[in-house]
Design a protein around this nucleic acid. Sequence first.
DNA 1: ACCCGGGTCCTCCCGTGGGCTGACGCCGCG
DNA 2: CGCGGCGTCAGCCCACGGGAGGACCCGGGT
Lengths: 220, 220
Amino acid sequence: MSEPIRVFLVDDQQMVRAGFRMLVESQDDMVVVGEAGDGGEALALLAVTASDVVLMDVRMPRMDGVEATSRLLATPDPPRVIVLTTFDLDEYAFAAIRAGASAFLLKDATPPDLLGAIRSVVAGDAVVAPSTTRRLLDHFAALPDPVSVASDPRLDVLTERELEVLTLIARGRTNPEIAADLVVAETTVKTHVGRLLAKTGSRDRVQLVVLAYESGLASS
Amino acid sequence: MSEPIRVFLVDDQQMVRAGFRMLVESQDDMVVVGEAGDGGEALALLAVTASDVVLMDVRMPRMDGVEATSRLLATPDPPRVIVLTTFDLDEYAFAAIRAGASAFLLKDATPPDLLGAIRSVVAGDAVVAPSTTRRLLDHFAALPDPVSVASDPRLDVLTERELEVLTLIARGRTNPEIAADLVVAETTVKTHVGRLLAKTGSRDRVQLVVLAYESGLASS
DNA sequence: ACCCGGGTCCTCCCGTGGGCTGACGCCGCG
DNA sequence: CGCGGCGTCAGCCCACGGGAGGACCCGGGT
């Protein structure tokens, strides 16, 4: 442990900063190199203060932690950012992750948790609070699976040709255009469209487009 | 701690199972209720063995851990599944998450890590190995943002009202319906639609729907 | 004071879309 | 063989959508 881990604290409440400072300074391989009370101040100070890890509160006046994280990560050779929040809200967590934070923790995390997170992010790993991980995984699992396209049951009764027509409708093509594409008469296309409407319970081609997208037939 | 946590072990190497069993049984609030050497055996035994947590190896003969997890989660009142792997490969991790696993750990996790993960998943939380979390977050951050819609530039010139009309069009509503929704005359709606068509370069409302979905305005 | 952009509303016109009805050839199935 | 589903095609009708052109009110900016 040649070089101590340089930690920077960002929180609008100085009492919170003092607590974190005590905790961090209690470790002989960590040192607090600075503090800031909001995002703007943090960016200004970090521009002239070399730091390894930034403990960043989410809710702050003027510039919040997410915005500050995003901007900080855009600077050359940025530090790792650990985002802290009091309330376990998805919006905060996901926004922080998108902003490029390496860790997302609740403020009720235990001191060992926080210190472990600091060491993890310095090592290049990432840390997410367990309760947040649950929902992160749920979101991830809920993502559209590129392999198995879960189709709408309403599309099951459609014939190959009808699906063909439906995809063309979902591309915004008119009946004459579809007729030209499929090399058939326009009246034939109208017949297919009529059957599509009847089978899917749609009112007009607009609702067919909606159905095509909602069911994943159209590539969004 | 009235009821002990019932743990089920699935791994094709009995030495590994023995190690886990020793670790789990060393806790006085946990008990091993069964073991299996592959996914099929695990499913069969778990069908008749009430269990809270399943420690599931990924690489196994016959049925692997991901497949077994997926099938297990499809049964009524399934246990939580902790997926374990020797190699930290994205395919395993993401497949396990999609399959519905509550935790993803490397086999080099420390005993406290594993025991903590067991307690976390029983509590409804999720756990991901730090090194995997890093890449999970990277993937997540790279996803299209559902909140701040990175809109199509064509939508930038639209007014608030026009966007409102556009979203209703994208829900398949007719002009009279939109008029009723917004409490305005139908002619007003037609004016908005006309401007939408002109501004976006669309030919008809069908193409507007396509645009709405492609730009992410409509929730697909 | 003025203008301009956004929102609202109107009338006239007509093309596309969709409903309805009926028809034909092809194929697979009982 | 007859039957039915599918794909093809036709004519008729008309409601809805969209274009053109004009009009009014309101708010903010010059």
